[in-house]
């Protein structure tokens, strides 16, 4: 062992008070935005990464409208009007998978360790991933609306309430994505994530009133569909885009959004802290 006497290392840096320095909310946001910029850069580099939130909903829409729409609603045009707001809602649930995928990838590839070795707010990578995905959602909704318009969809209310529907849908995405973040932290490998995520995504998306009226469903399914947050969100978006009741489904949707955040944000954050 070295026998050299050393001065206390604290003296090496006069500026260091030795106390814990924290990174304030403003700098946290700044770091988060920088990392969101990274997500956007990646989208620009490989737009094919957006196929899951662009092509998939279009395929769903086309399939249901042209294949089943006539049979379900008697008329494909009418079915499209009814279904599009729901597909938008559904797409947010599927799209949230990307948040968990990216975070899991960053952790397993070691990119997170790089960020964590920098004086960067610990929650910044999380904020960056979630904010970056807002861009994905906006692109996804824009593409979906263009295609739907080409298919014959028309907003029957007005631009303002249609815009409100879009904002609400994205807001919902920001609440539901914490489930995905949590799963992304819990699963060991990225490959396992889609399979695990399907277990919550499928009941949420398909077990809803997005594609079919609920009257003919068995009682137990009706019970679930009538409380399903995606049904509520779809109802609200329908009301805002093609007309109908808004207040009721909107308040139910907001209650769900708060619930999702209250339950899954702490769980996701806990899983994140344990993992990183």
């Amino acid at each position: 062992m070295s026998t050299t006497t050393v001065e206390r290392p604290e003296q090496a840096d006069q500026r260091s008070p030795g106390a814990t320095r924290r990174i304030g909310p403003l700098r946290t946001l700044q770091h988060g935005l920088t990392l969101a910029g990274r997500s956007v850069l990646k989208i620009r580099k490989s737009p094919e990464g957006l196929l899951d939130v662009t092509l998939q909903p279009i395929l769903f829409l086309a399939m249901f409208v042209y294949l089943l729409g006539g049979a379900i609603a008697g008329d494909t045009g009418e079915y499209l009007q009814r279904t599009l707001p729901g597909v938008m809602a559904m797409n947010m649930v599927f799209g949230s998978l990307g948040t968990g995928m990216q975070l899991n990838n960053d952790i397993t590839k070691g990119v997170f360790d790089r960020f964590r070795s920098l004086p960067v707010a610990r929650s910044a990578p999380l904020i960056g991933a979630v904010l970056g995905d807002v861009v994905r959602y906006v692109v996804s909704i824009a593409v979906l609306l263009v295609v739907a318009t080409l298919m014959g969809f028309r907003i029957e209310t007005n631009v303002v309430s249609a815009a409100a529907a879009i904002v609400l849908v994205i807001g919902f995405a920001l609440c539901v994505c914490w489930i995905s973040v949590m799963l992304g932290m819990l699963v060991k490998s990225q490959q396992a994530l889609p399979g695990v995520a399907m277990s919550f995504m499928f009941p949420l998306t398909m077990g809803s009133n997005v594609f079919a009226p609920t009257e003919t469903m068995p009682g137990w399914l009706q019970a679930w569909v009538s409380v399903n947050p995606v049904s509520k969100l779809a109802d609200t978006a329908r009301g805002l885009m093609i007309g109908g009741p808004v207040a009721g489904p909107l308040s139910a949707t907001l209650v769900w959004m708060v619930t999702l955040v209250v339950v899954f944000f702490p769980l996701a954050l806990g899983a994140y802290r344990r993992r990183v």
Binding site: K42, G110, D113
Partner: peptide, 8 residues
């Protein structure tokens, strides 16, 4: 482990 983003 402290890596960089391979896509960038």
């Amino acid at each position: 482990y402290a890596s960089v983003d391979e896509e960038l």
